[in-house]
Design a protein around this nucleic acid. Sequence first.
DNA 1: GTAGGGTTAG
Length: 642
Amino acid sequence: MNPTLQTLVQLPPQTHPSTQFPLITKCRTLAELKQVHAHMLKTAQIYDPLAAAELLRHVSLSPYRDLNYAASLFRGIPQRNCFSWNTIIRALSESSDHDDSVRAIALFVEMLCDDTVEPNQFTFPSVLKACAQSGRLDEGRQIQCMVVKKSLDSDEFVVSNLVRMYVLCRCMVEAHKIFSMRMVGRHNLDAFKKRRQEGDIVLWNVMVDGYVRTGDLVSAKELFDEMPRRSTVSWNVIISGYSQNGLFKEAIQAFQEMQQVQDGNLRPNFVTLVSILPAISRLGALELGKWVHLYAERNKIEINDVLGSALVDMYSKCGSIEKAIQVFRRLPRRNPITWNSIIGGLAMHGRARDALDYFHQMDKFEIPPTSVTYILVLTACSHGGLVPEGWSVFNRMVNVAQFELRLEHYCCMVDLLCRAGHLDEAEQLMINMPLEPDDVILKALLAGCKLHGNAEMGERVAKRLMELAPSDSGAYVALSNMFASAGDWEAVSEMRLKMKEMEIRKDPGCSWIEIDGIVHEFVVEDESHPRAQEIYSMLVEISDKLRLLGYRPNTSQVLLNVDEDEKETFLHYHSEKIAVAFGLISTGPQVPLRVVKNLRICEDCHESMKLISNAYNRRIVVRDRKRFHHFEAGSCSCGDYW
DNA sequence: GTAGGGTTAG
């Protein structure tokens, strides 16, 4: 026995009036608990069911728990009481490991066979949670029968876990049935019911979360609006629901609404921030992102690896890669996802060498790269034109790390080779890979054909893409593009007709810019903005100014059989140009403009942005679908390789 | 004893 423990054993029990087992509660490590375990075996204290249960509770549920040790300890308890059964089942059901959930259910079945104990209101929440996490719907249904037989179907903890079980098994109809049955009695407001209603907030949260999980945000919002009371968790559920289902503006709106609510207890917490940041990132709303960062610091919300990863990602996606690096460096702890965030950020900003450098640093910190890390590093190589480096990463992944290659990895390699002009090698890699090509990889190849003017391969790939994804605009656009460059307008109109017949439309281009914390969105030829008139005069001014600087519109990407003047008009009203024009009239001189676009920037806009940055002496940062372009003094950070 | 979270190929 070590000295610390010696002192513990000698402590007189009366110094710990609050607990019966001072020896156990004083332990601060698993090793100490193990020694107490040994001590209890030696002194036969393990035969005391209460002492044994208390030891089990600490081994299973304390921060230094060890589930395997807990399970074996449980097996060695001579007289297991209901408390120890509940403890071990709860510990296993709280683990994120699927196998632990299955073990929890198996133990519950064993418990049913033990004549000396009966499952109670503390057992069912845990075992239902285990069913939910392992998707055991049949077992869950049987347990529901037991719950009803035991009249535990009025216990709020049991009910919310029952509903959660159905929710996670994607049975919203059954979940709703239980929910509405409980809500029937909700209006009888005696004291007991009132207390129950307060507790029911969890049940409401579970239901809203259920609709969020099935992607039914309309029902989720309806239920959310009907809630008698909302906690921070309720808001978190709806905010992360919007955020994870791509409804970023709605997420931010809900976040801002949350702060309007007059309730001193309702404040954004750690999870709120982690949930809202991806929406901020996607919209590139830097000012709001900075506000969230400051909020965390001022409110003592710990910036750990999880929140840190979200912040690093936010700063990168909002254009401040330097700030992202700064946050990353200051983090007390970094996990593989944190590293992925920074590597992805560097990749987006075209800093391929730095991305590779960070990737190699992971080895030094003994952080194992994940499958996603390889996707990000290969993307970095692809955008930086680093072919040999890309191959080396790819080979390390296969031969050294022995990762299973996913389509995403092949796609990055194909993209890398295509951009660098190795079209045949890229096609061979795709043909020889052990996976079936999908639309994304074909589109990478197609983009390469377009970039390097290989019409023969392009046509072949486009046709295959059409078979694979007949409702995708990509192949049609690419093919008509190729016909257009060849001047074959008949074929072009044929393609357009076909698209019309099949109701295929190109994704509309859309750009947005944040001015004073408000995100302004523009689509092609957008005239809906309140300041549309001023914006359009600005566009004319820009156009005149650029012409004097020698700008000639690049109409090669306009796939319409119209004359050159009309083609130029189309180019003028690309959404990113409108956003920049609006930025120029809404901000003071020298304020950098940050524009986010949903598609990739076109060549003409890219060229125009370079000239605008020069003519108006402005830094312009454009984030397109894939990466950043920092325009300054007439040139772009991507070195025209994108 | 109940609810909520970060990175991902064109």
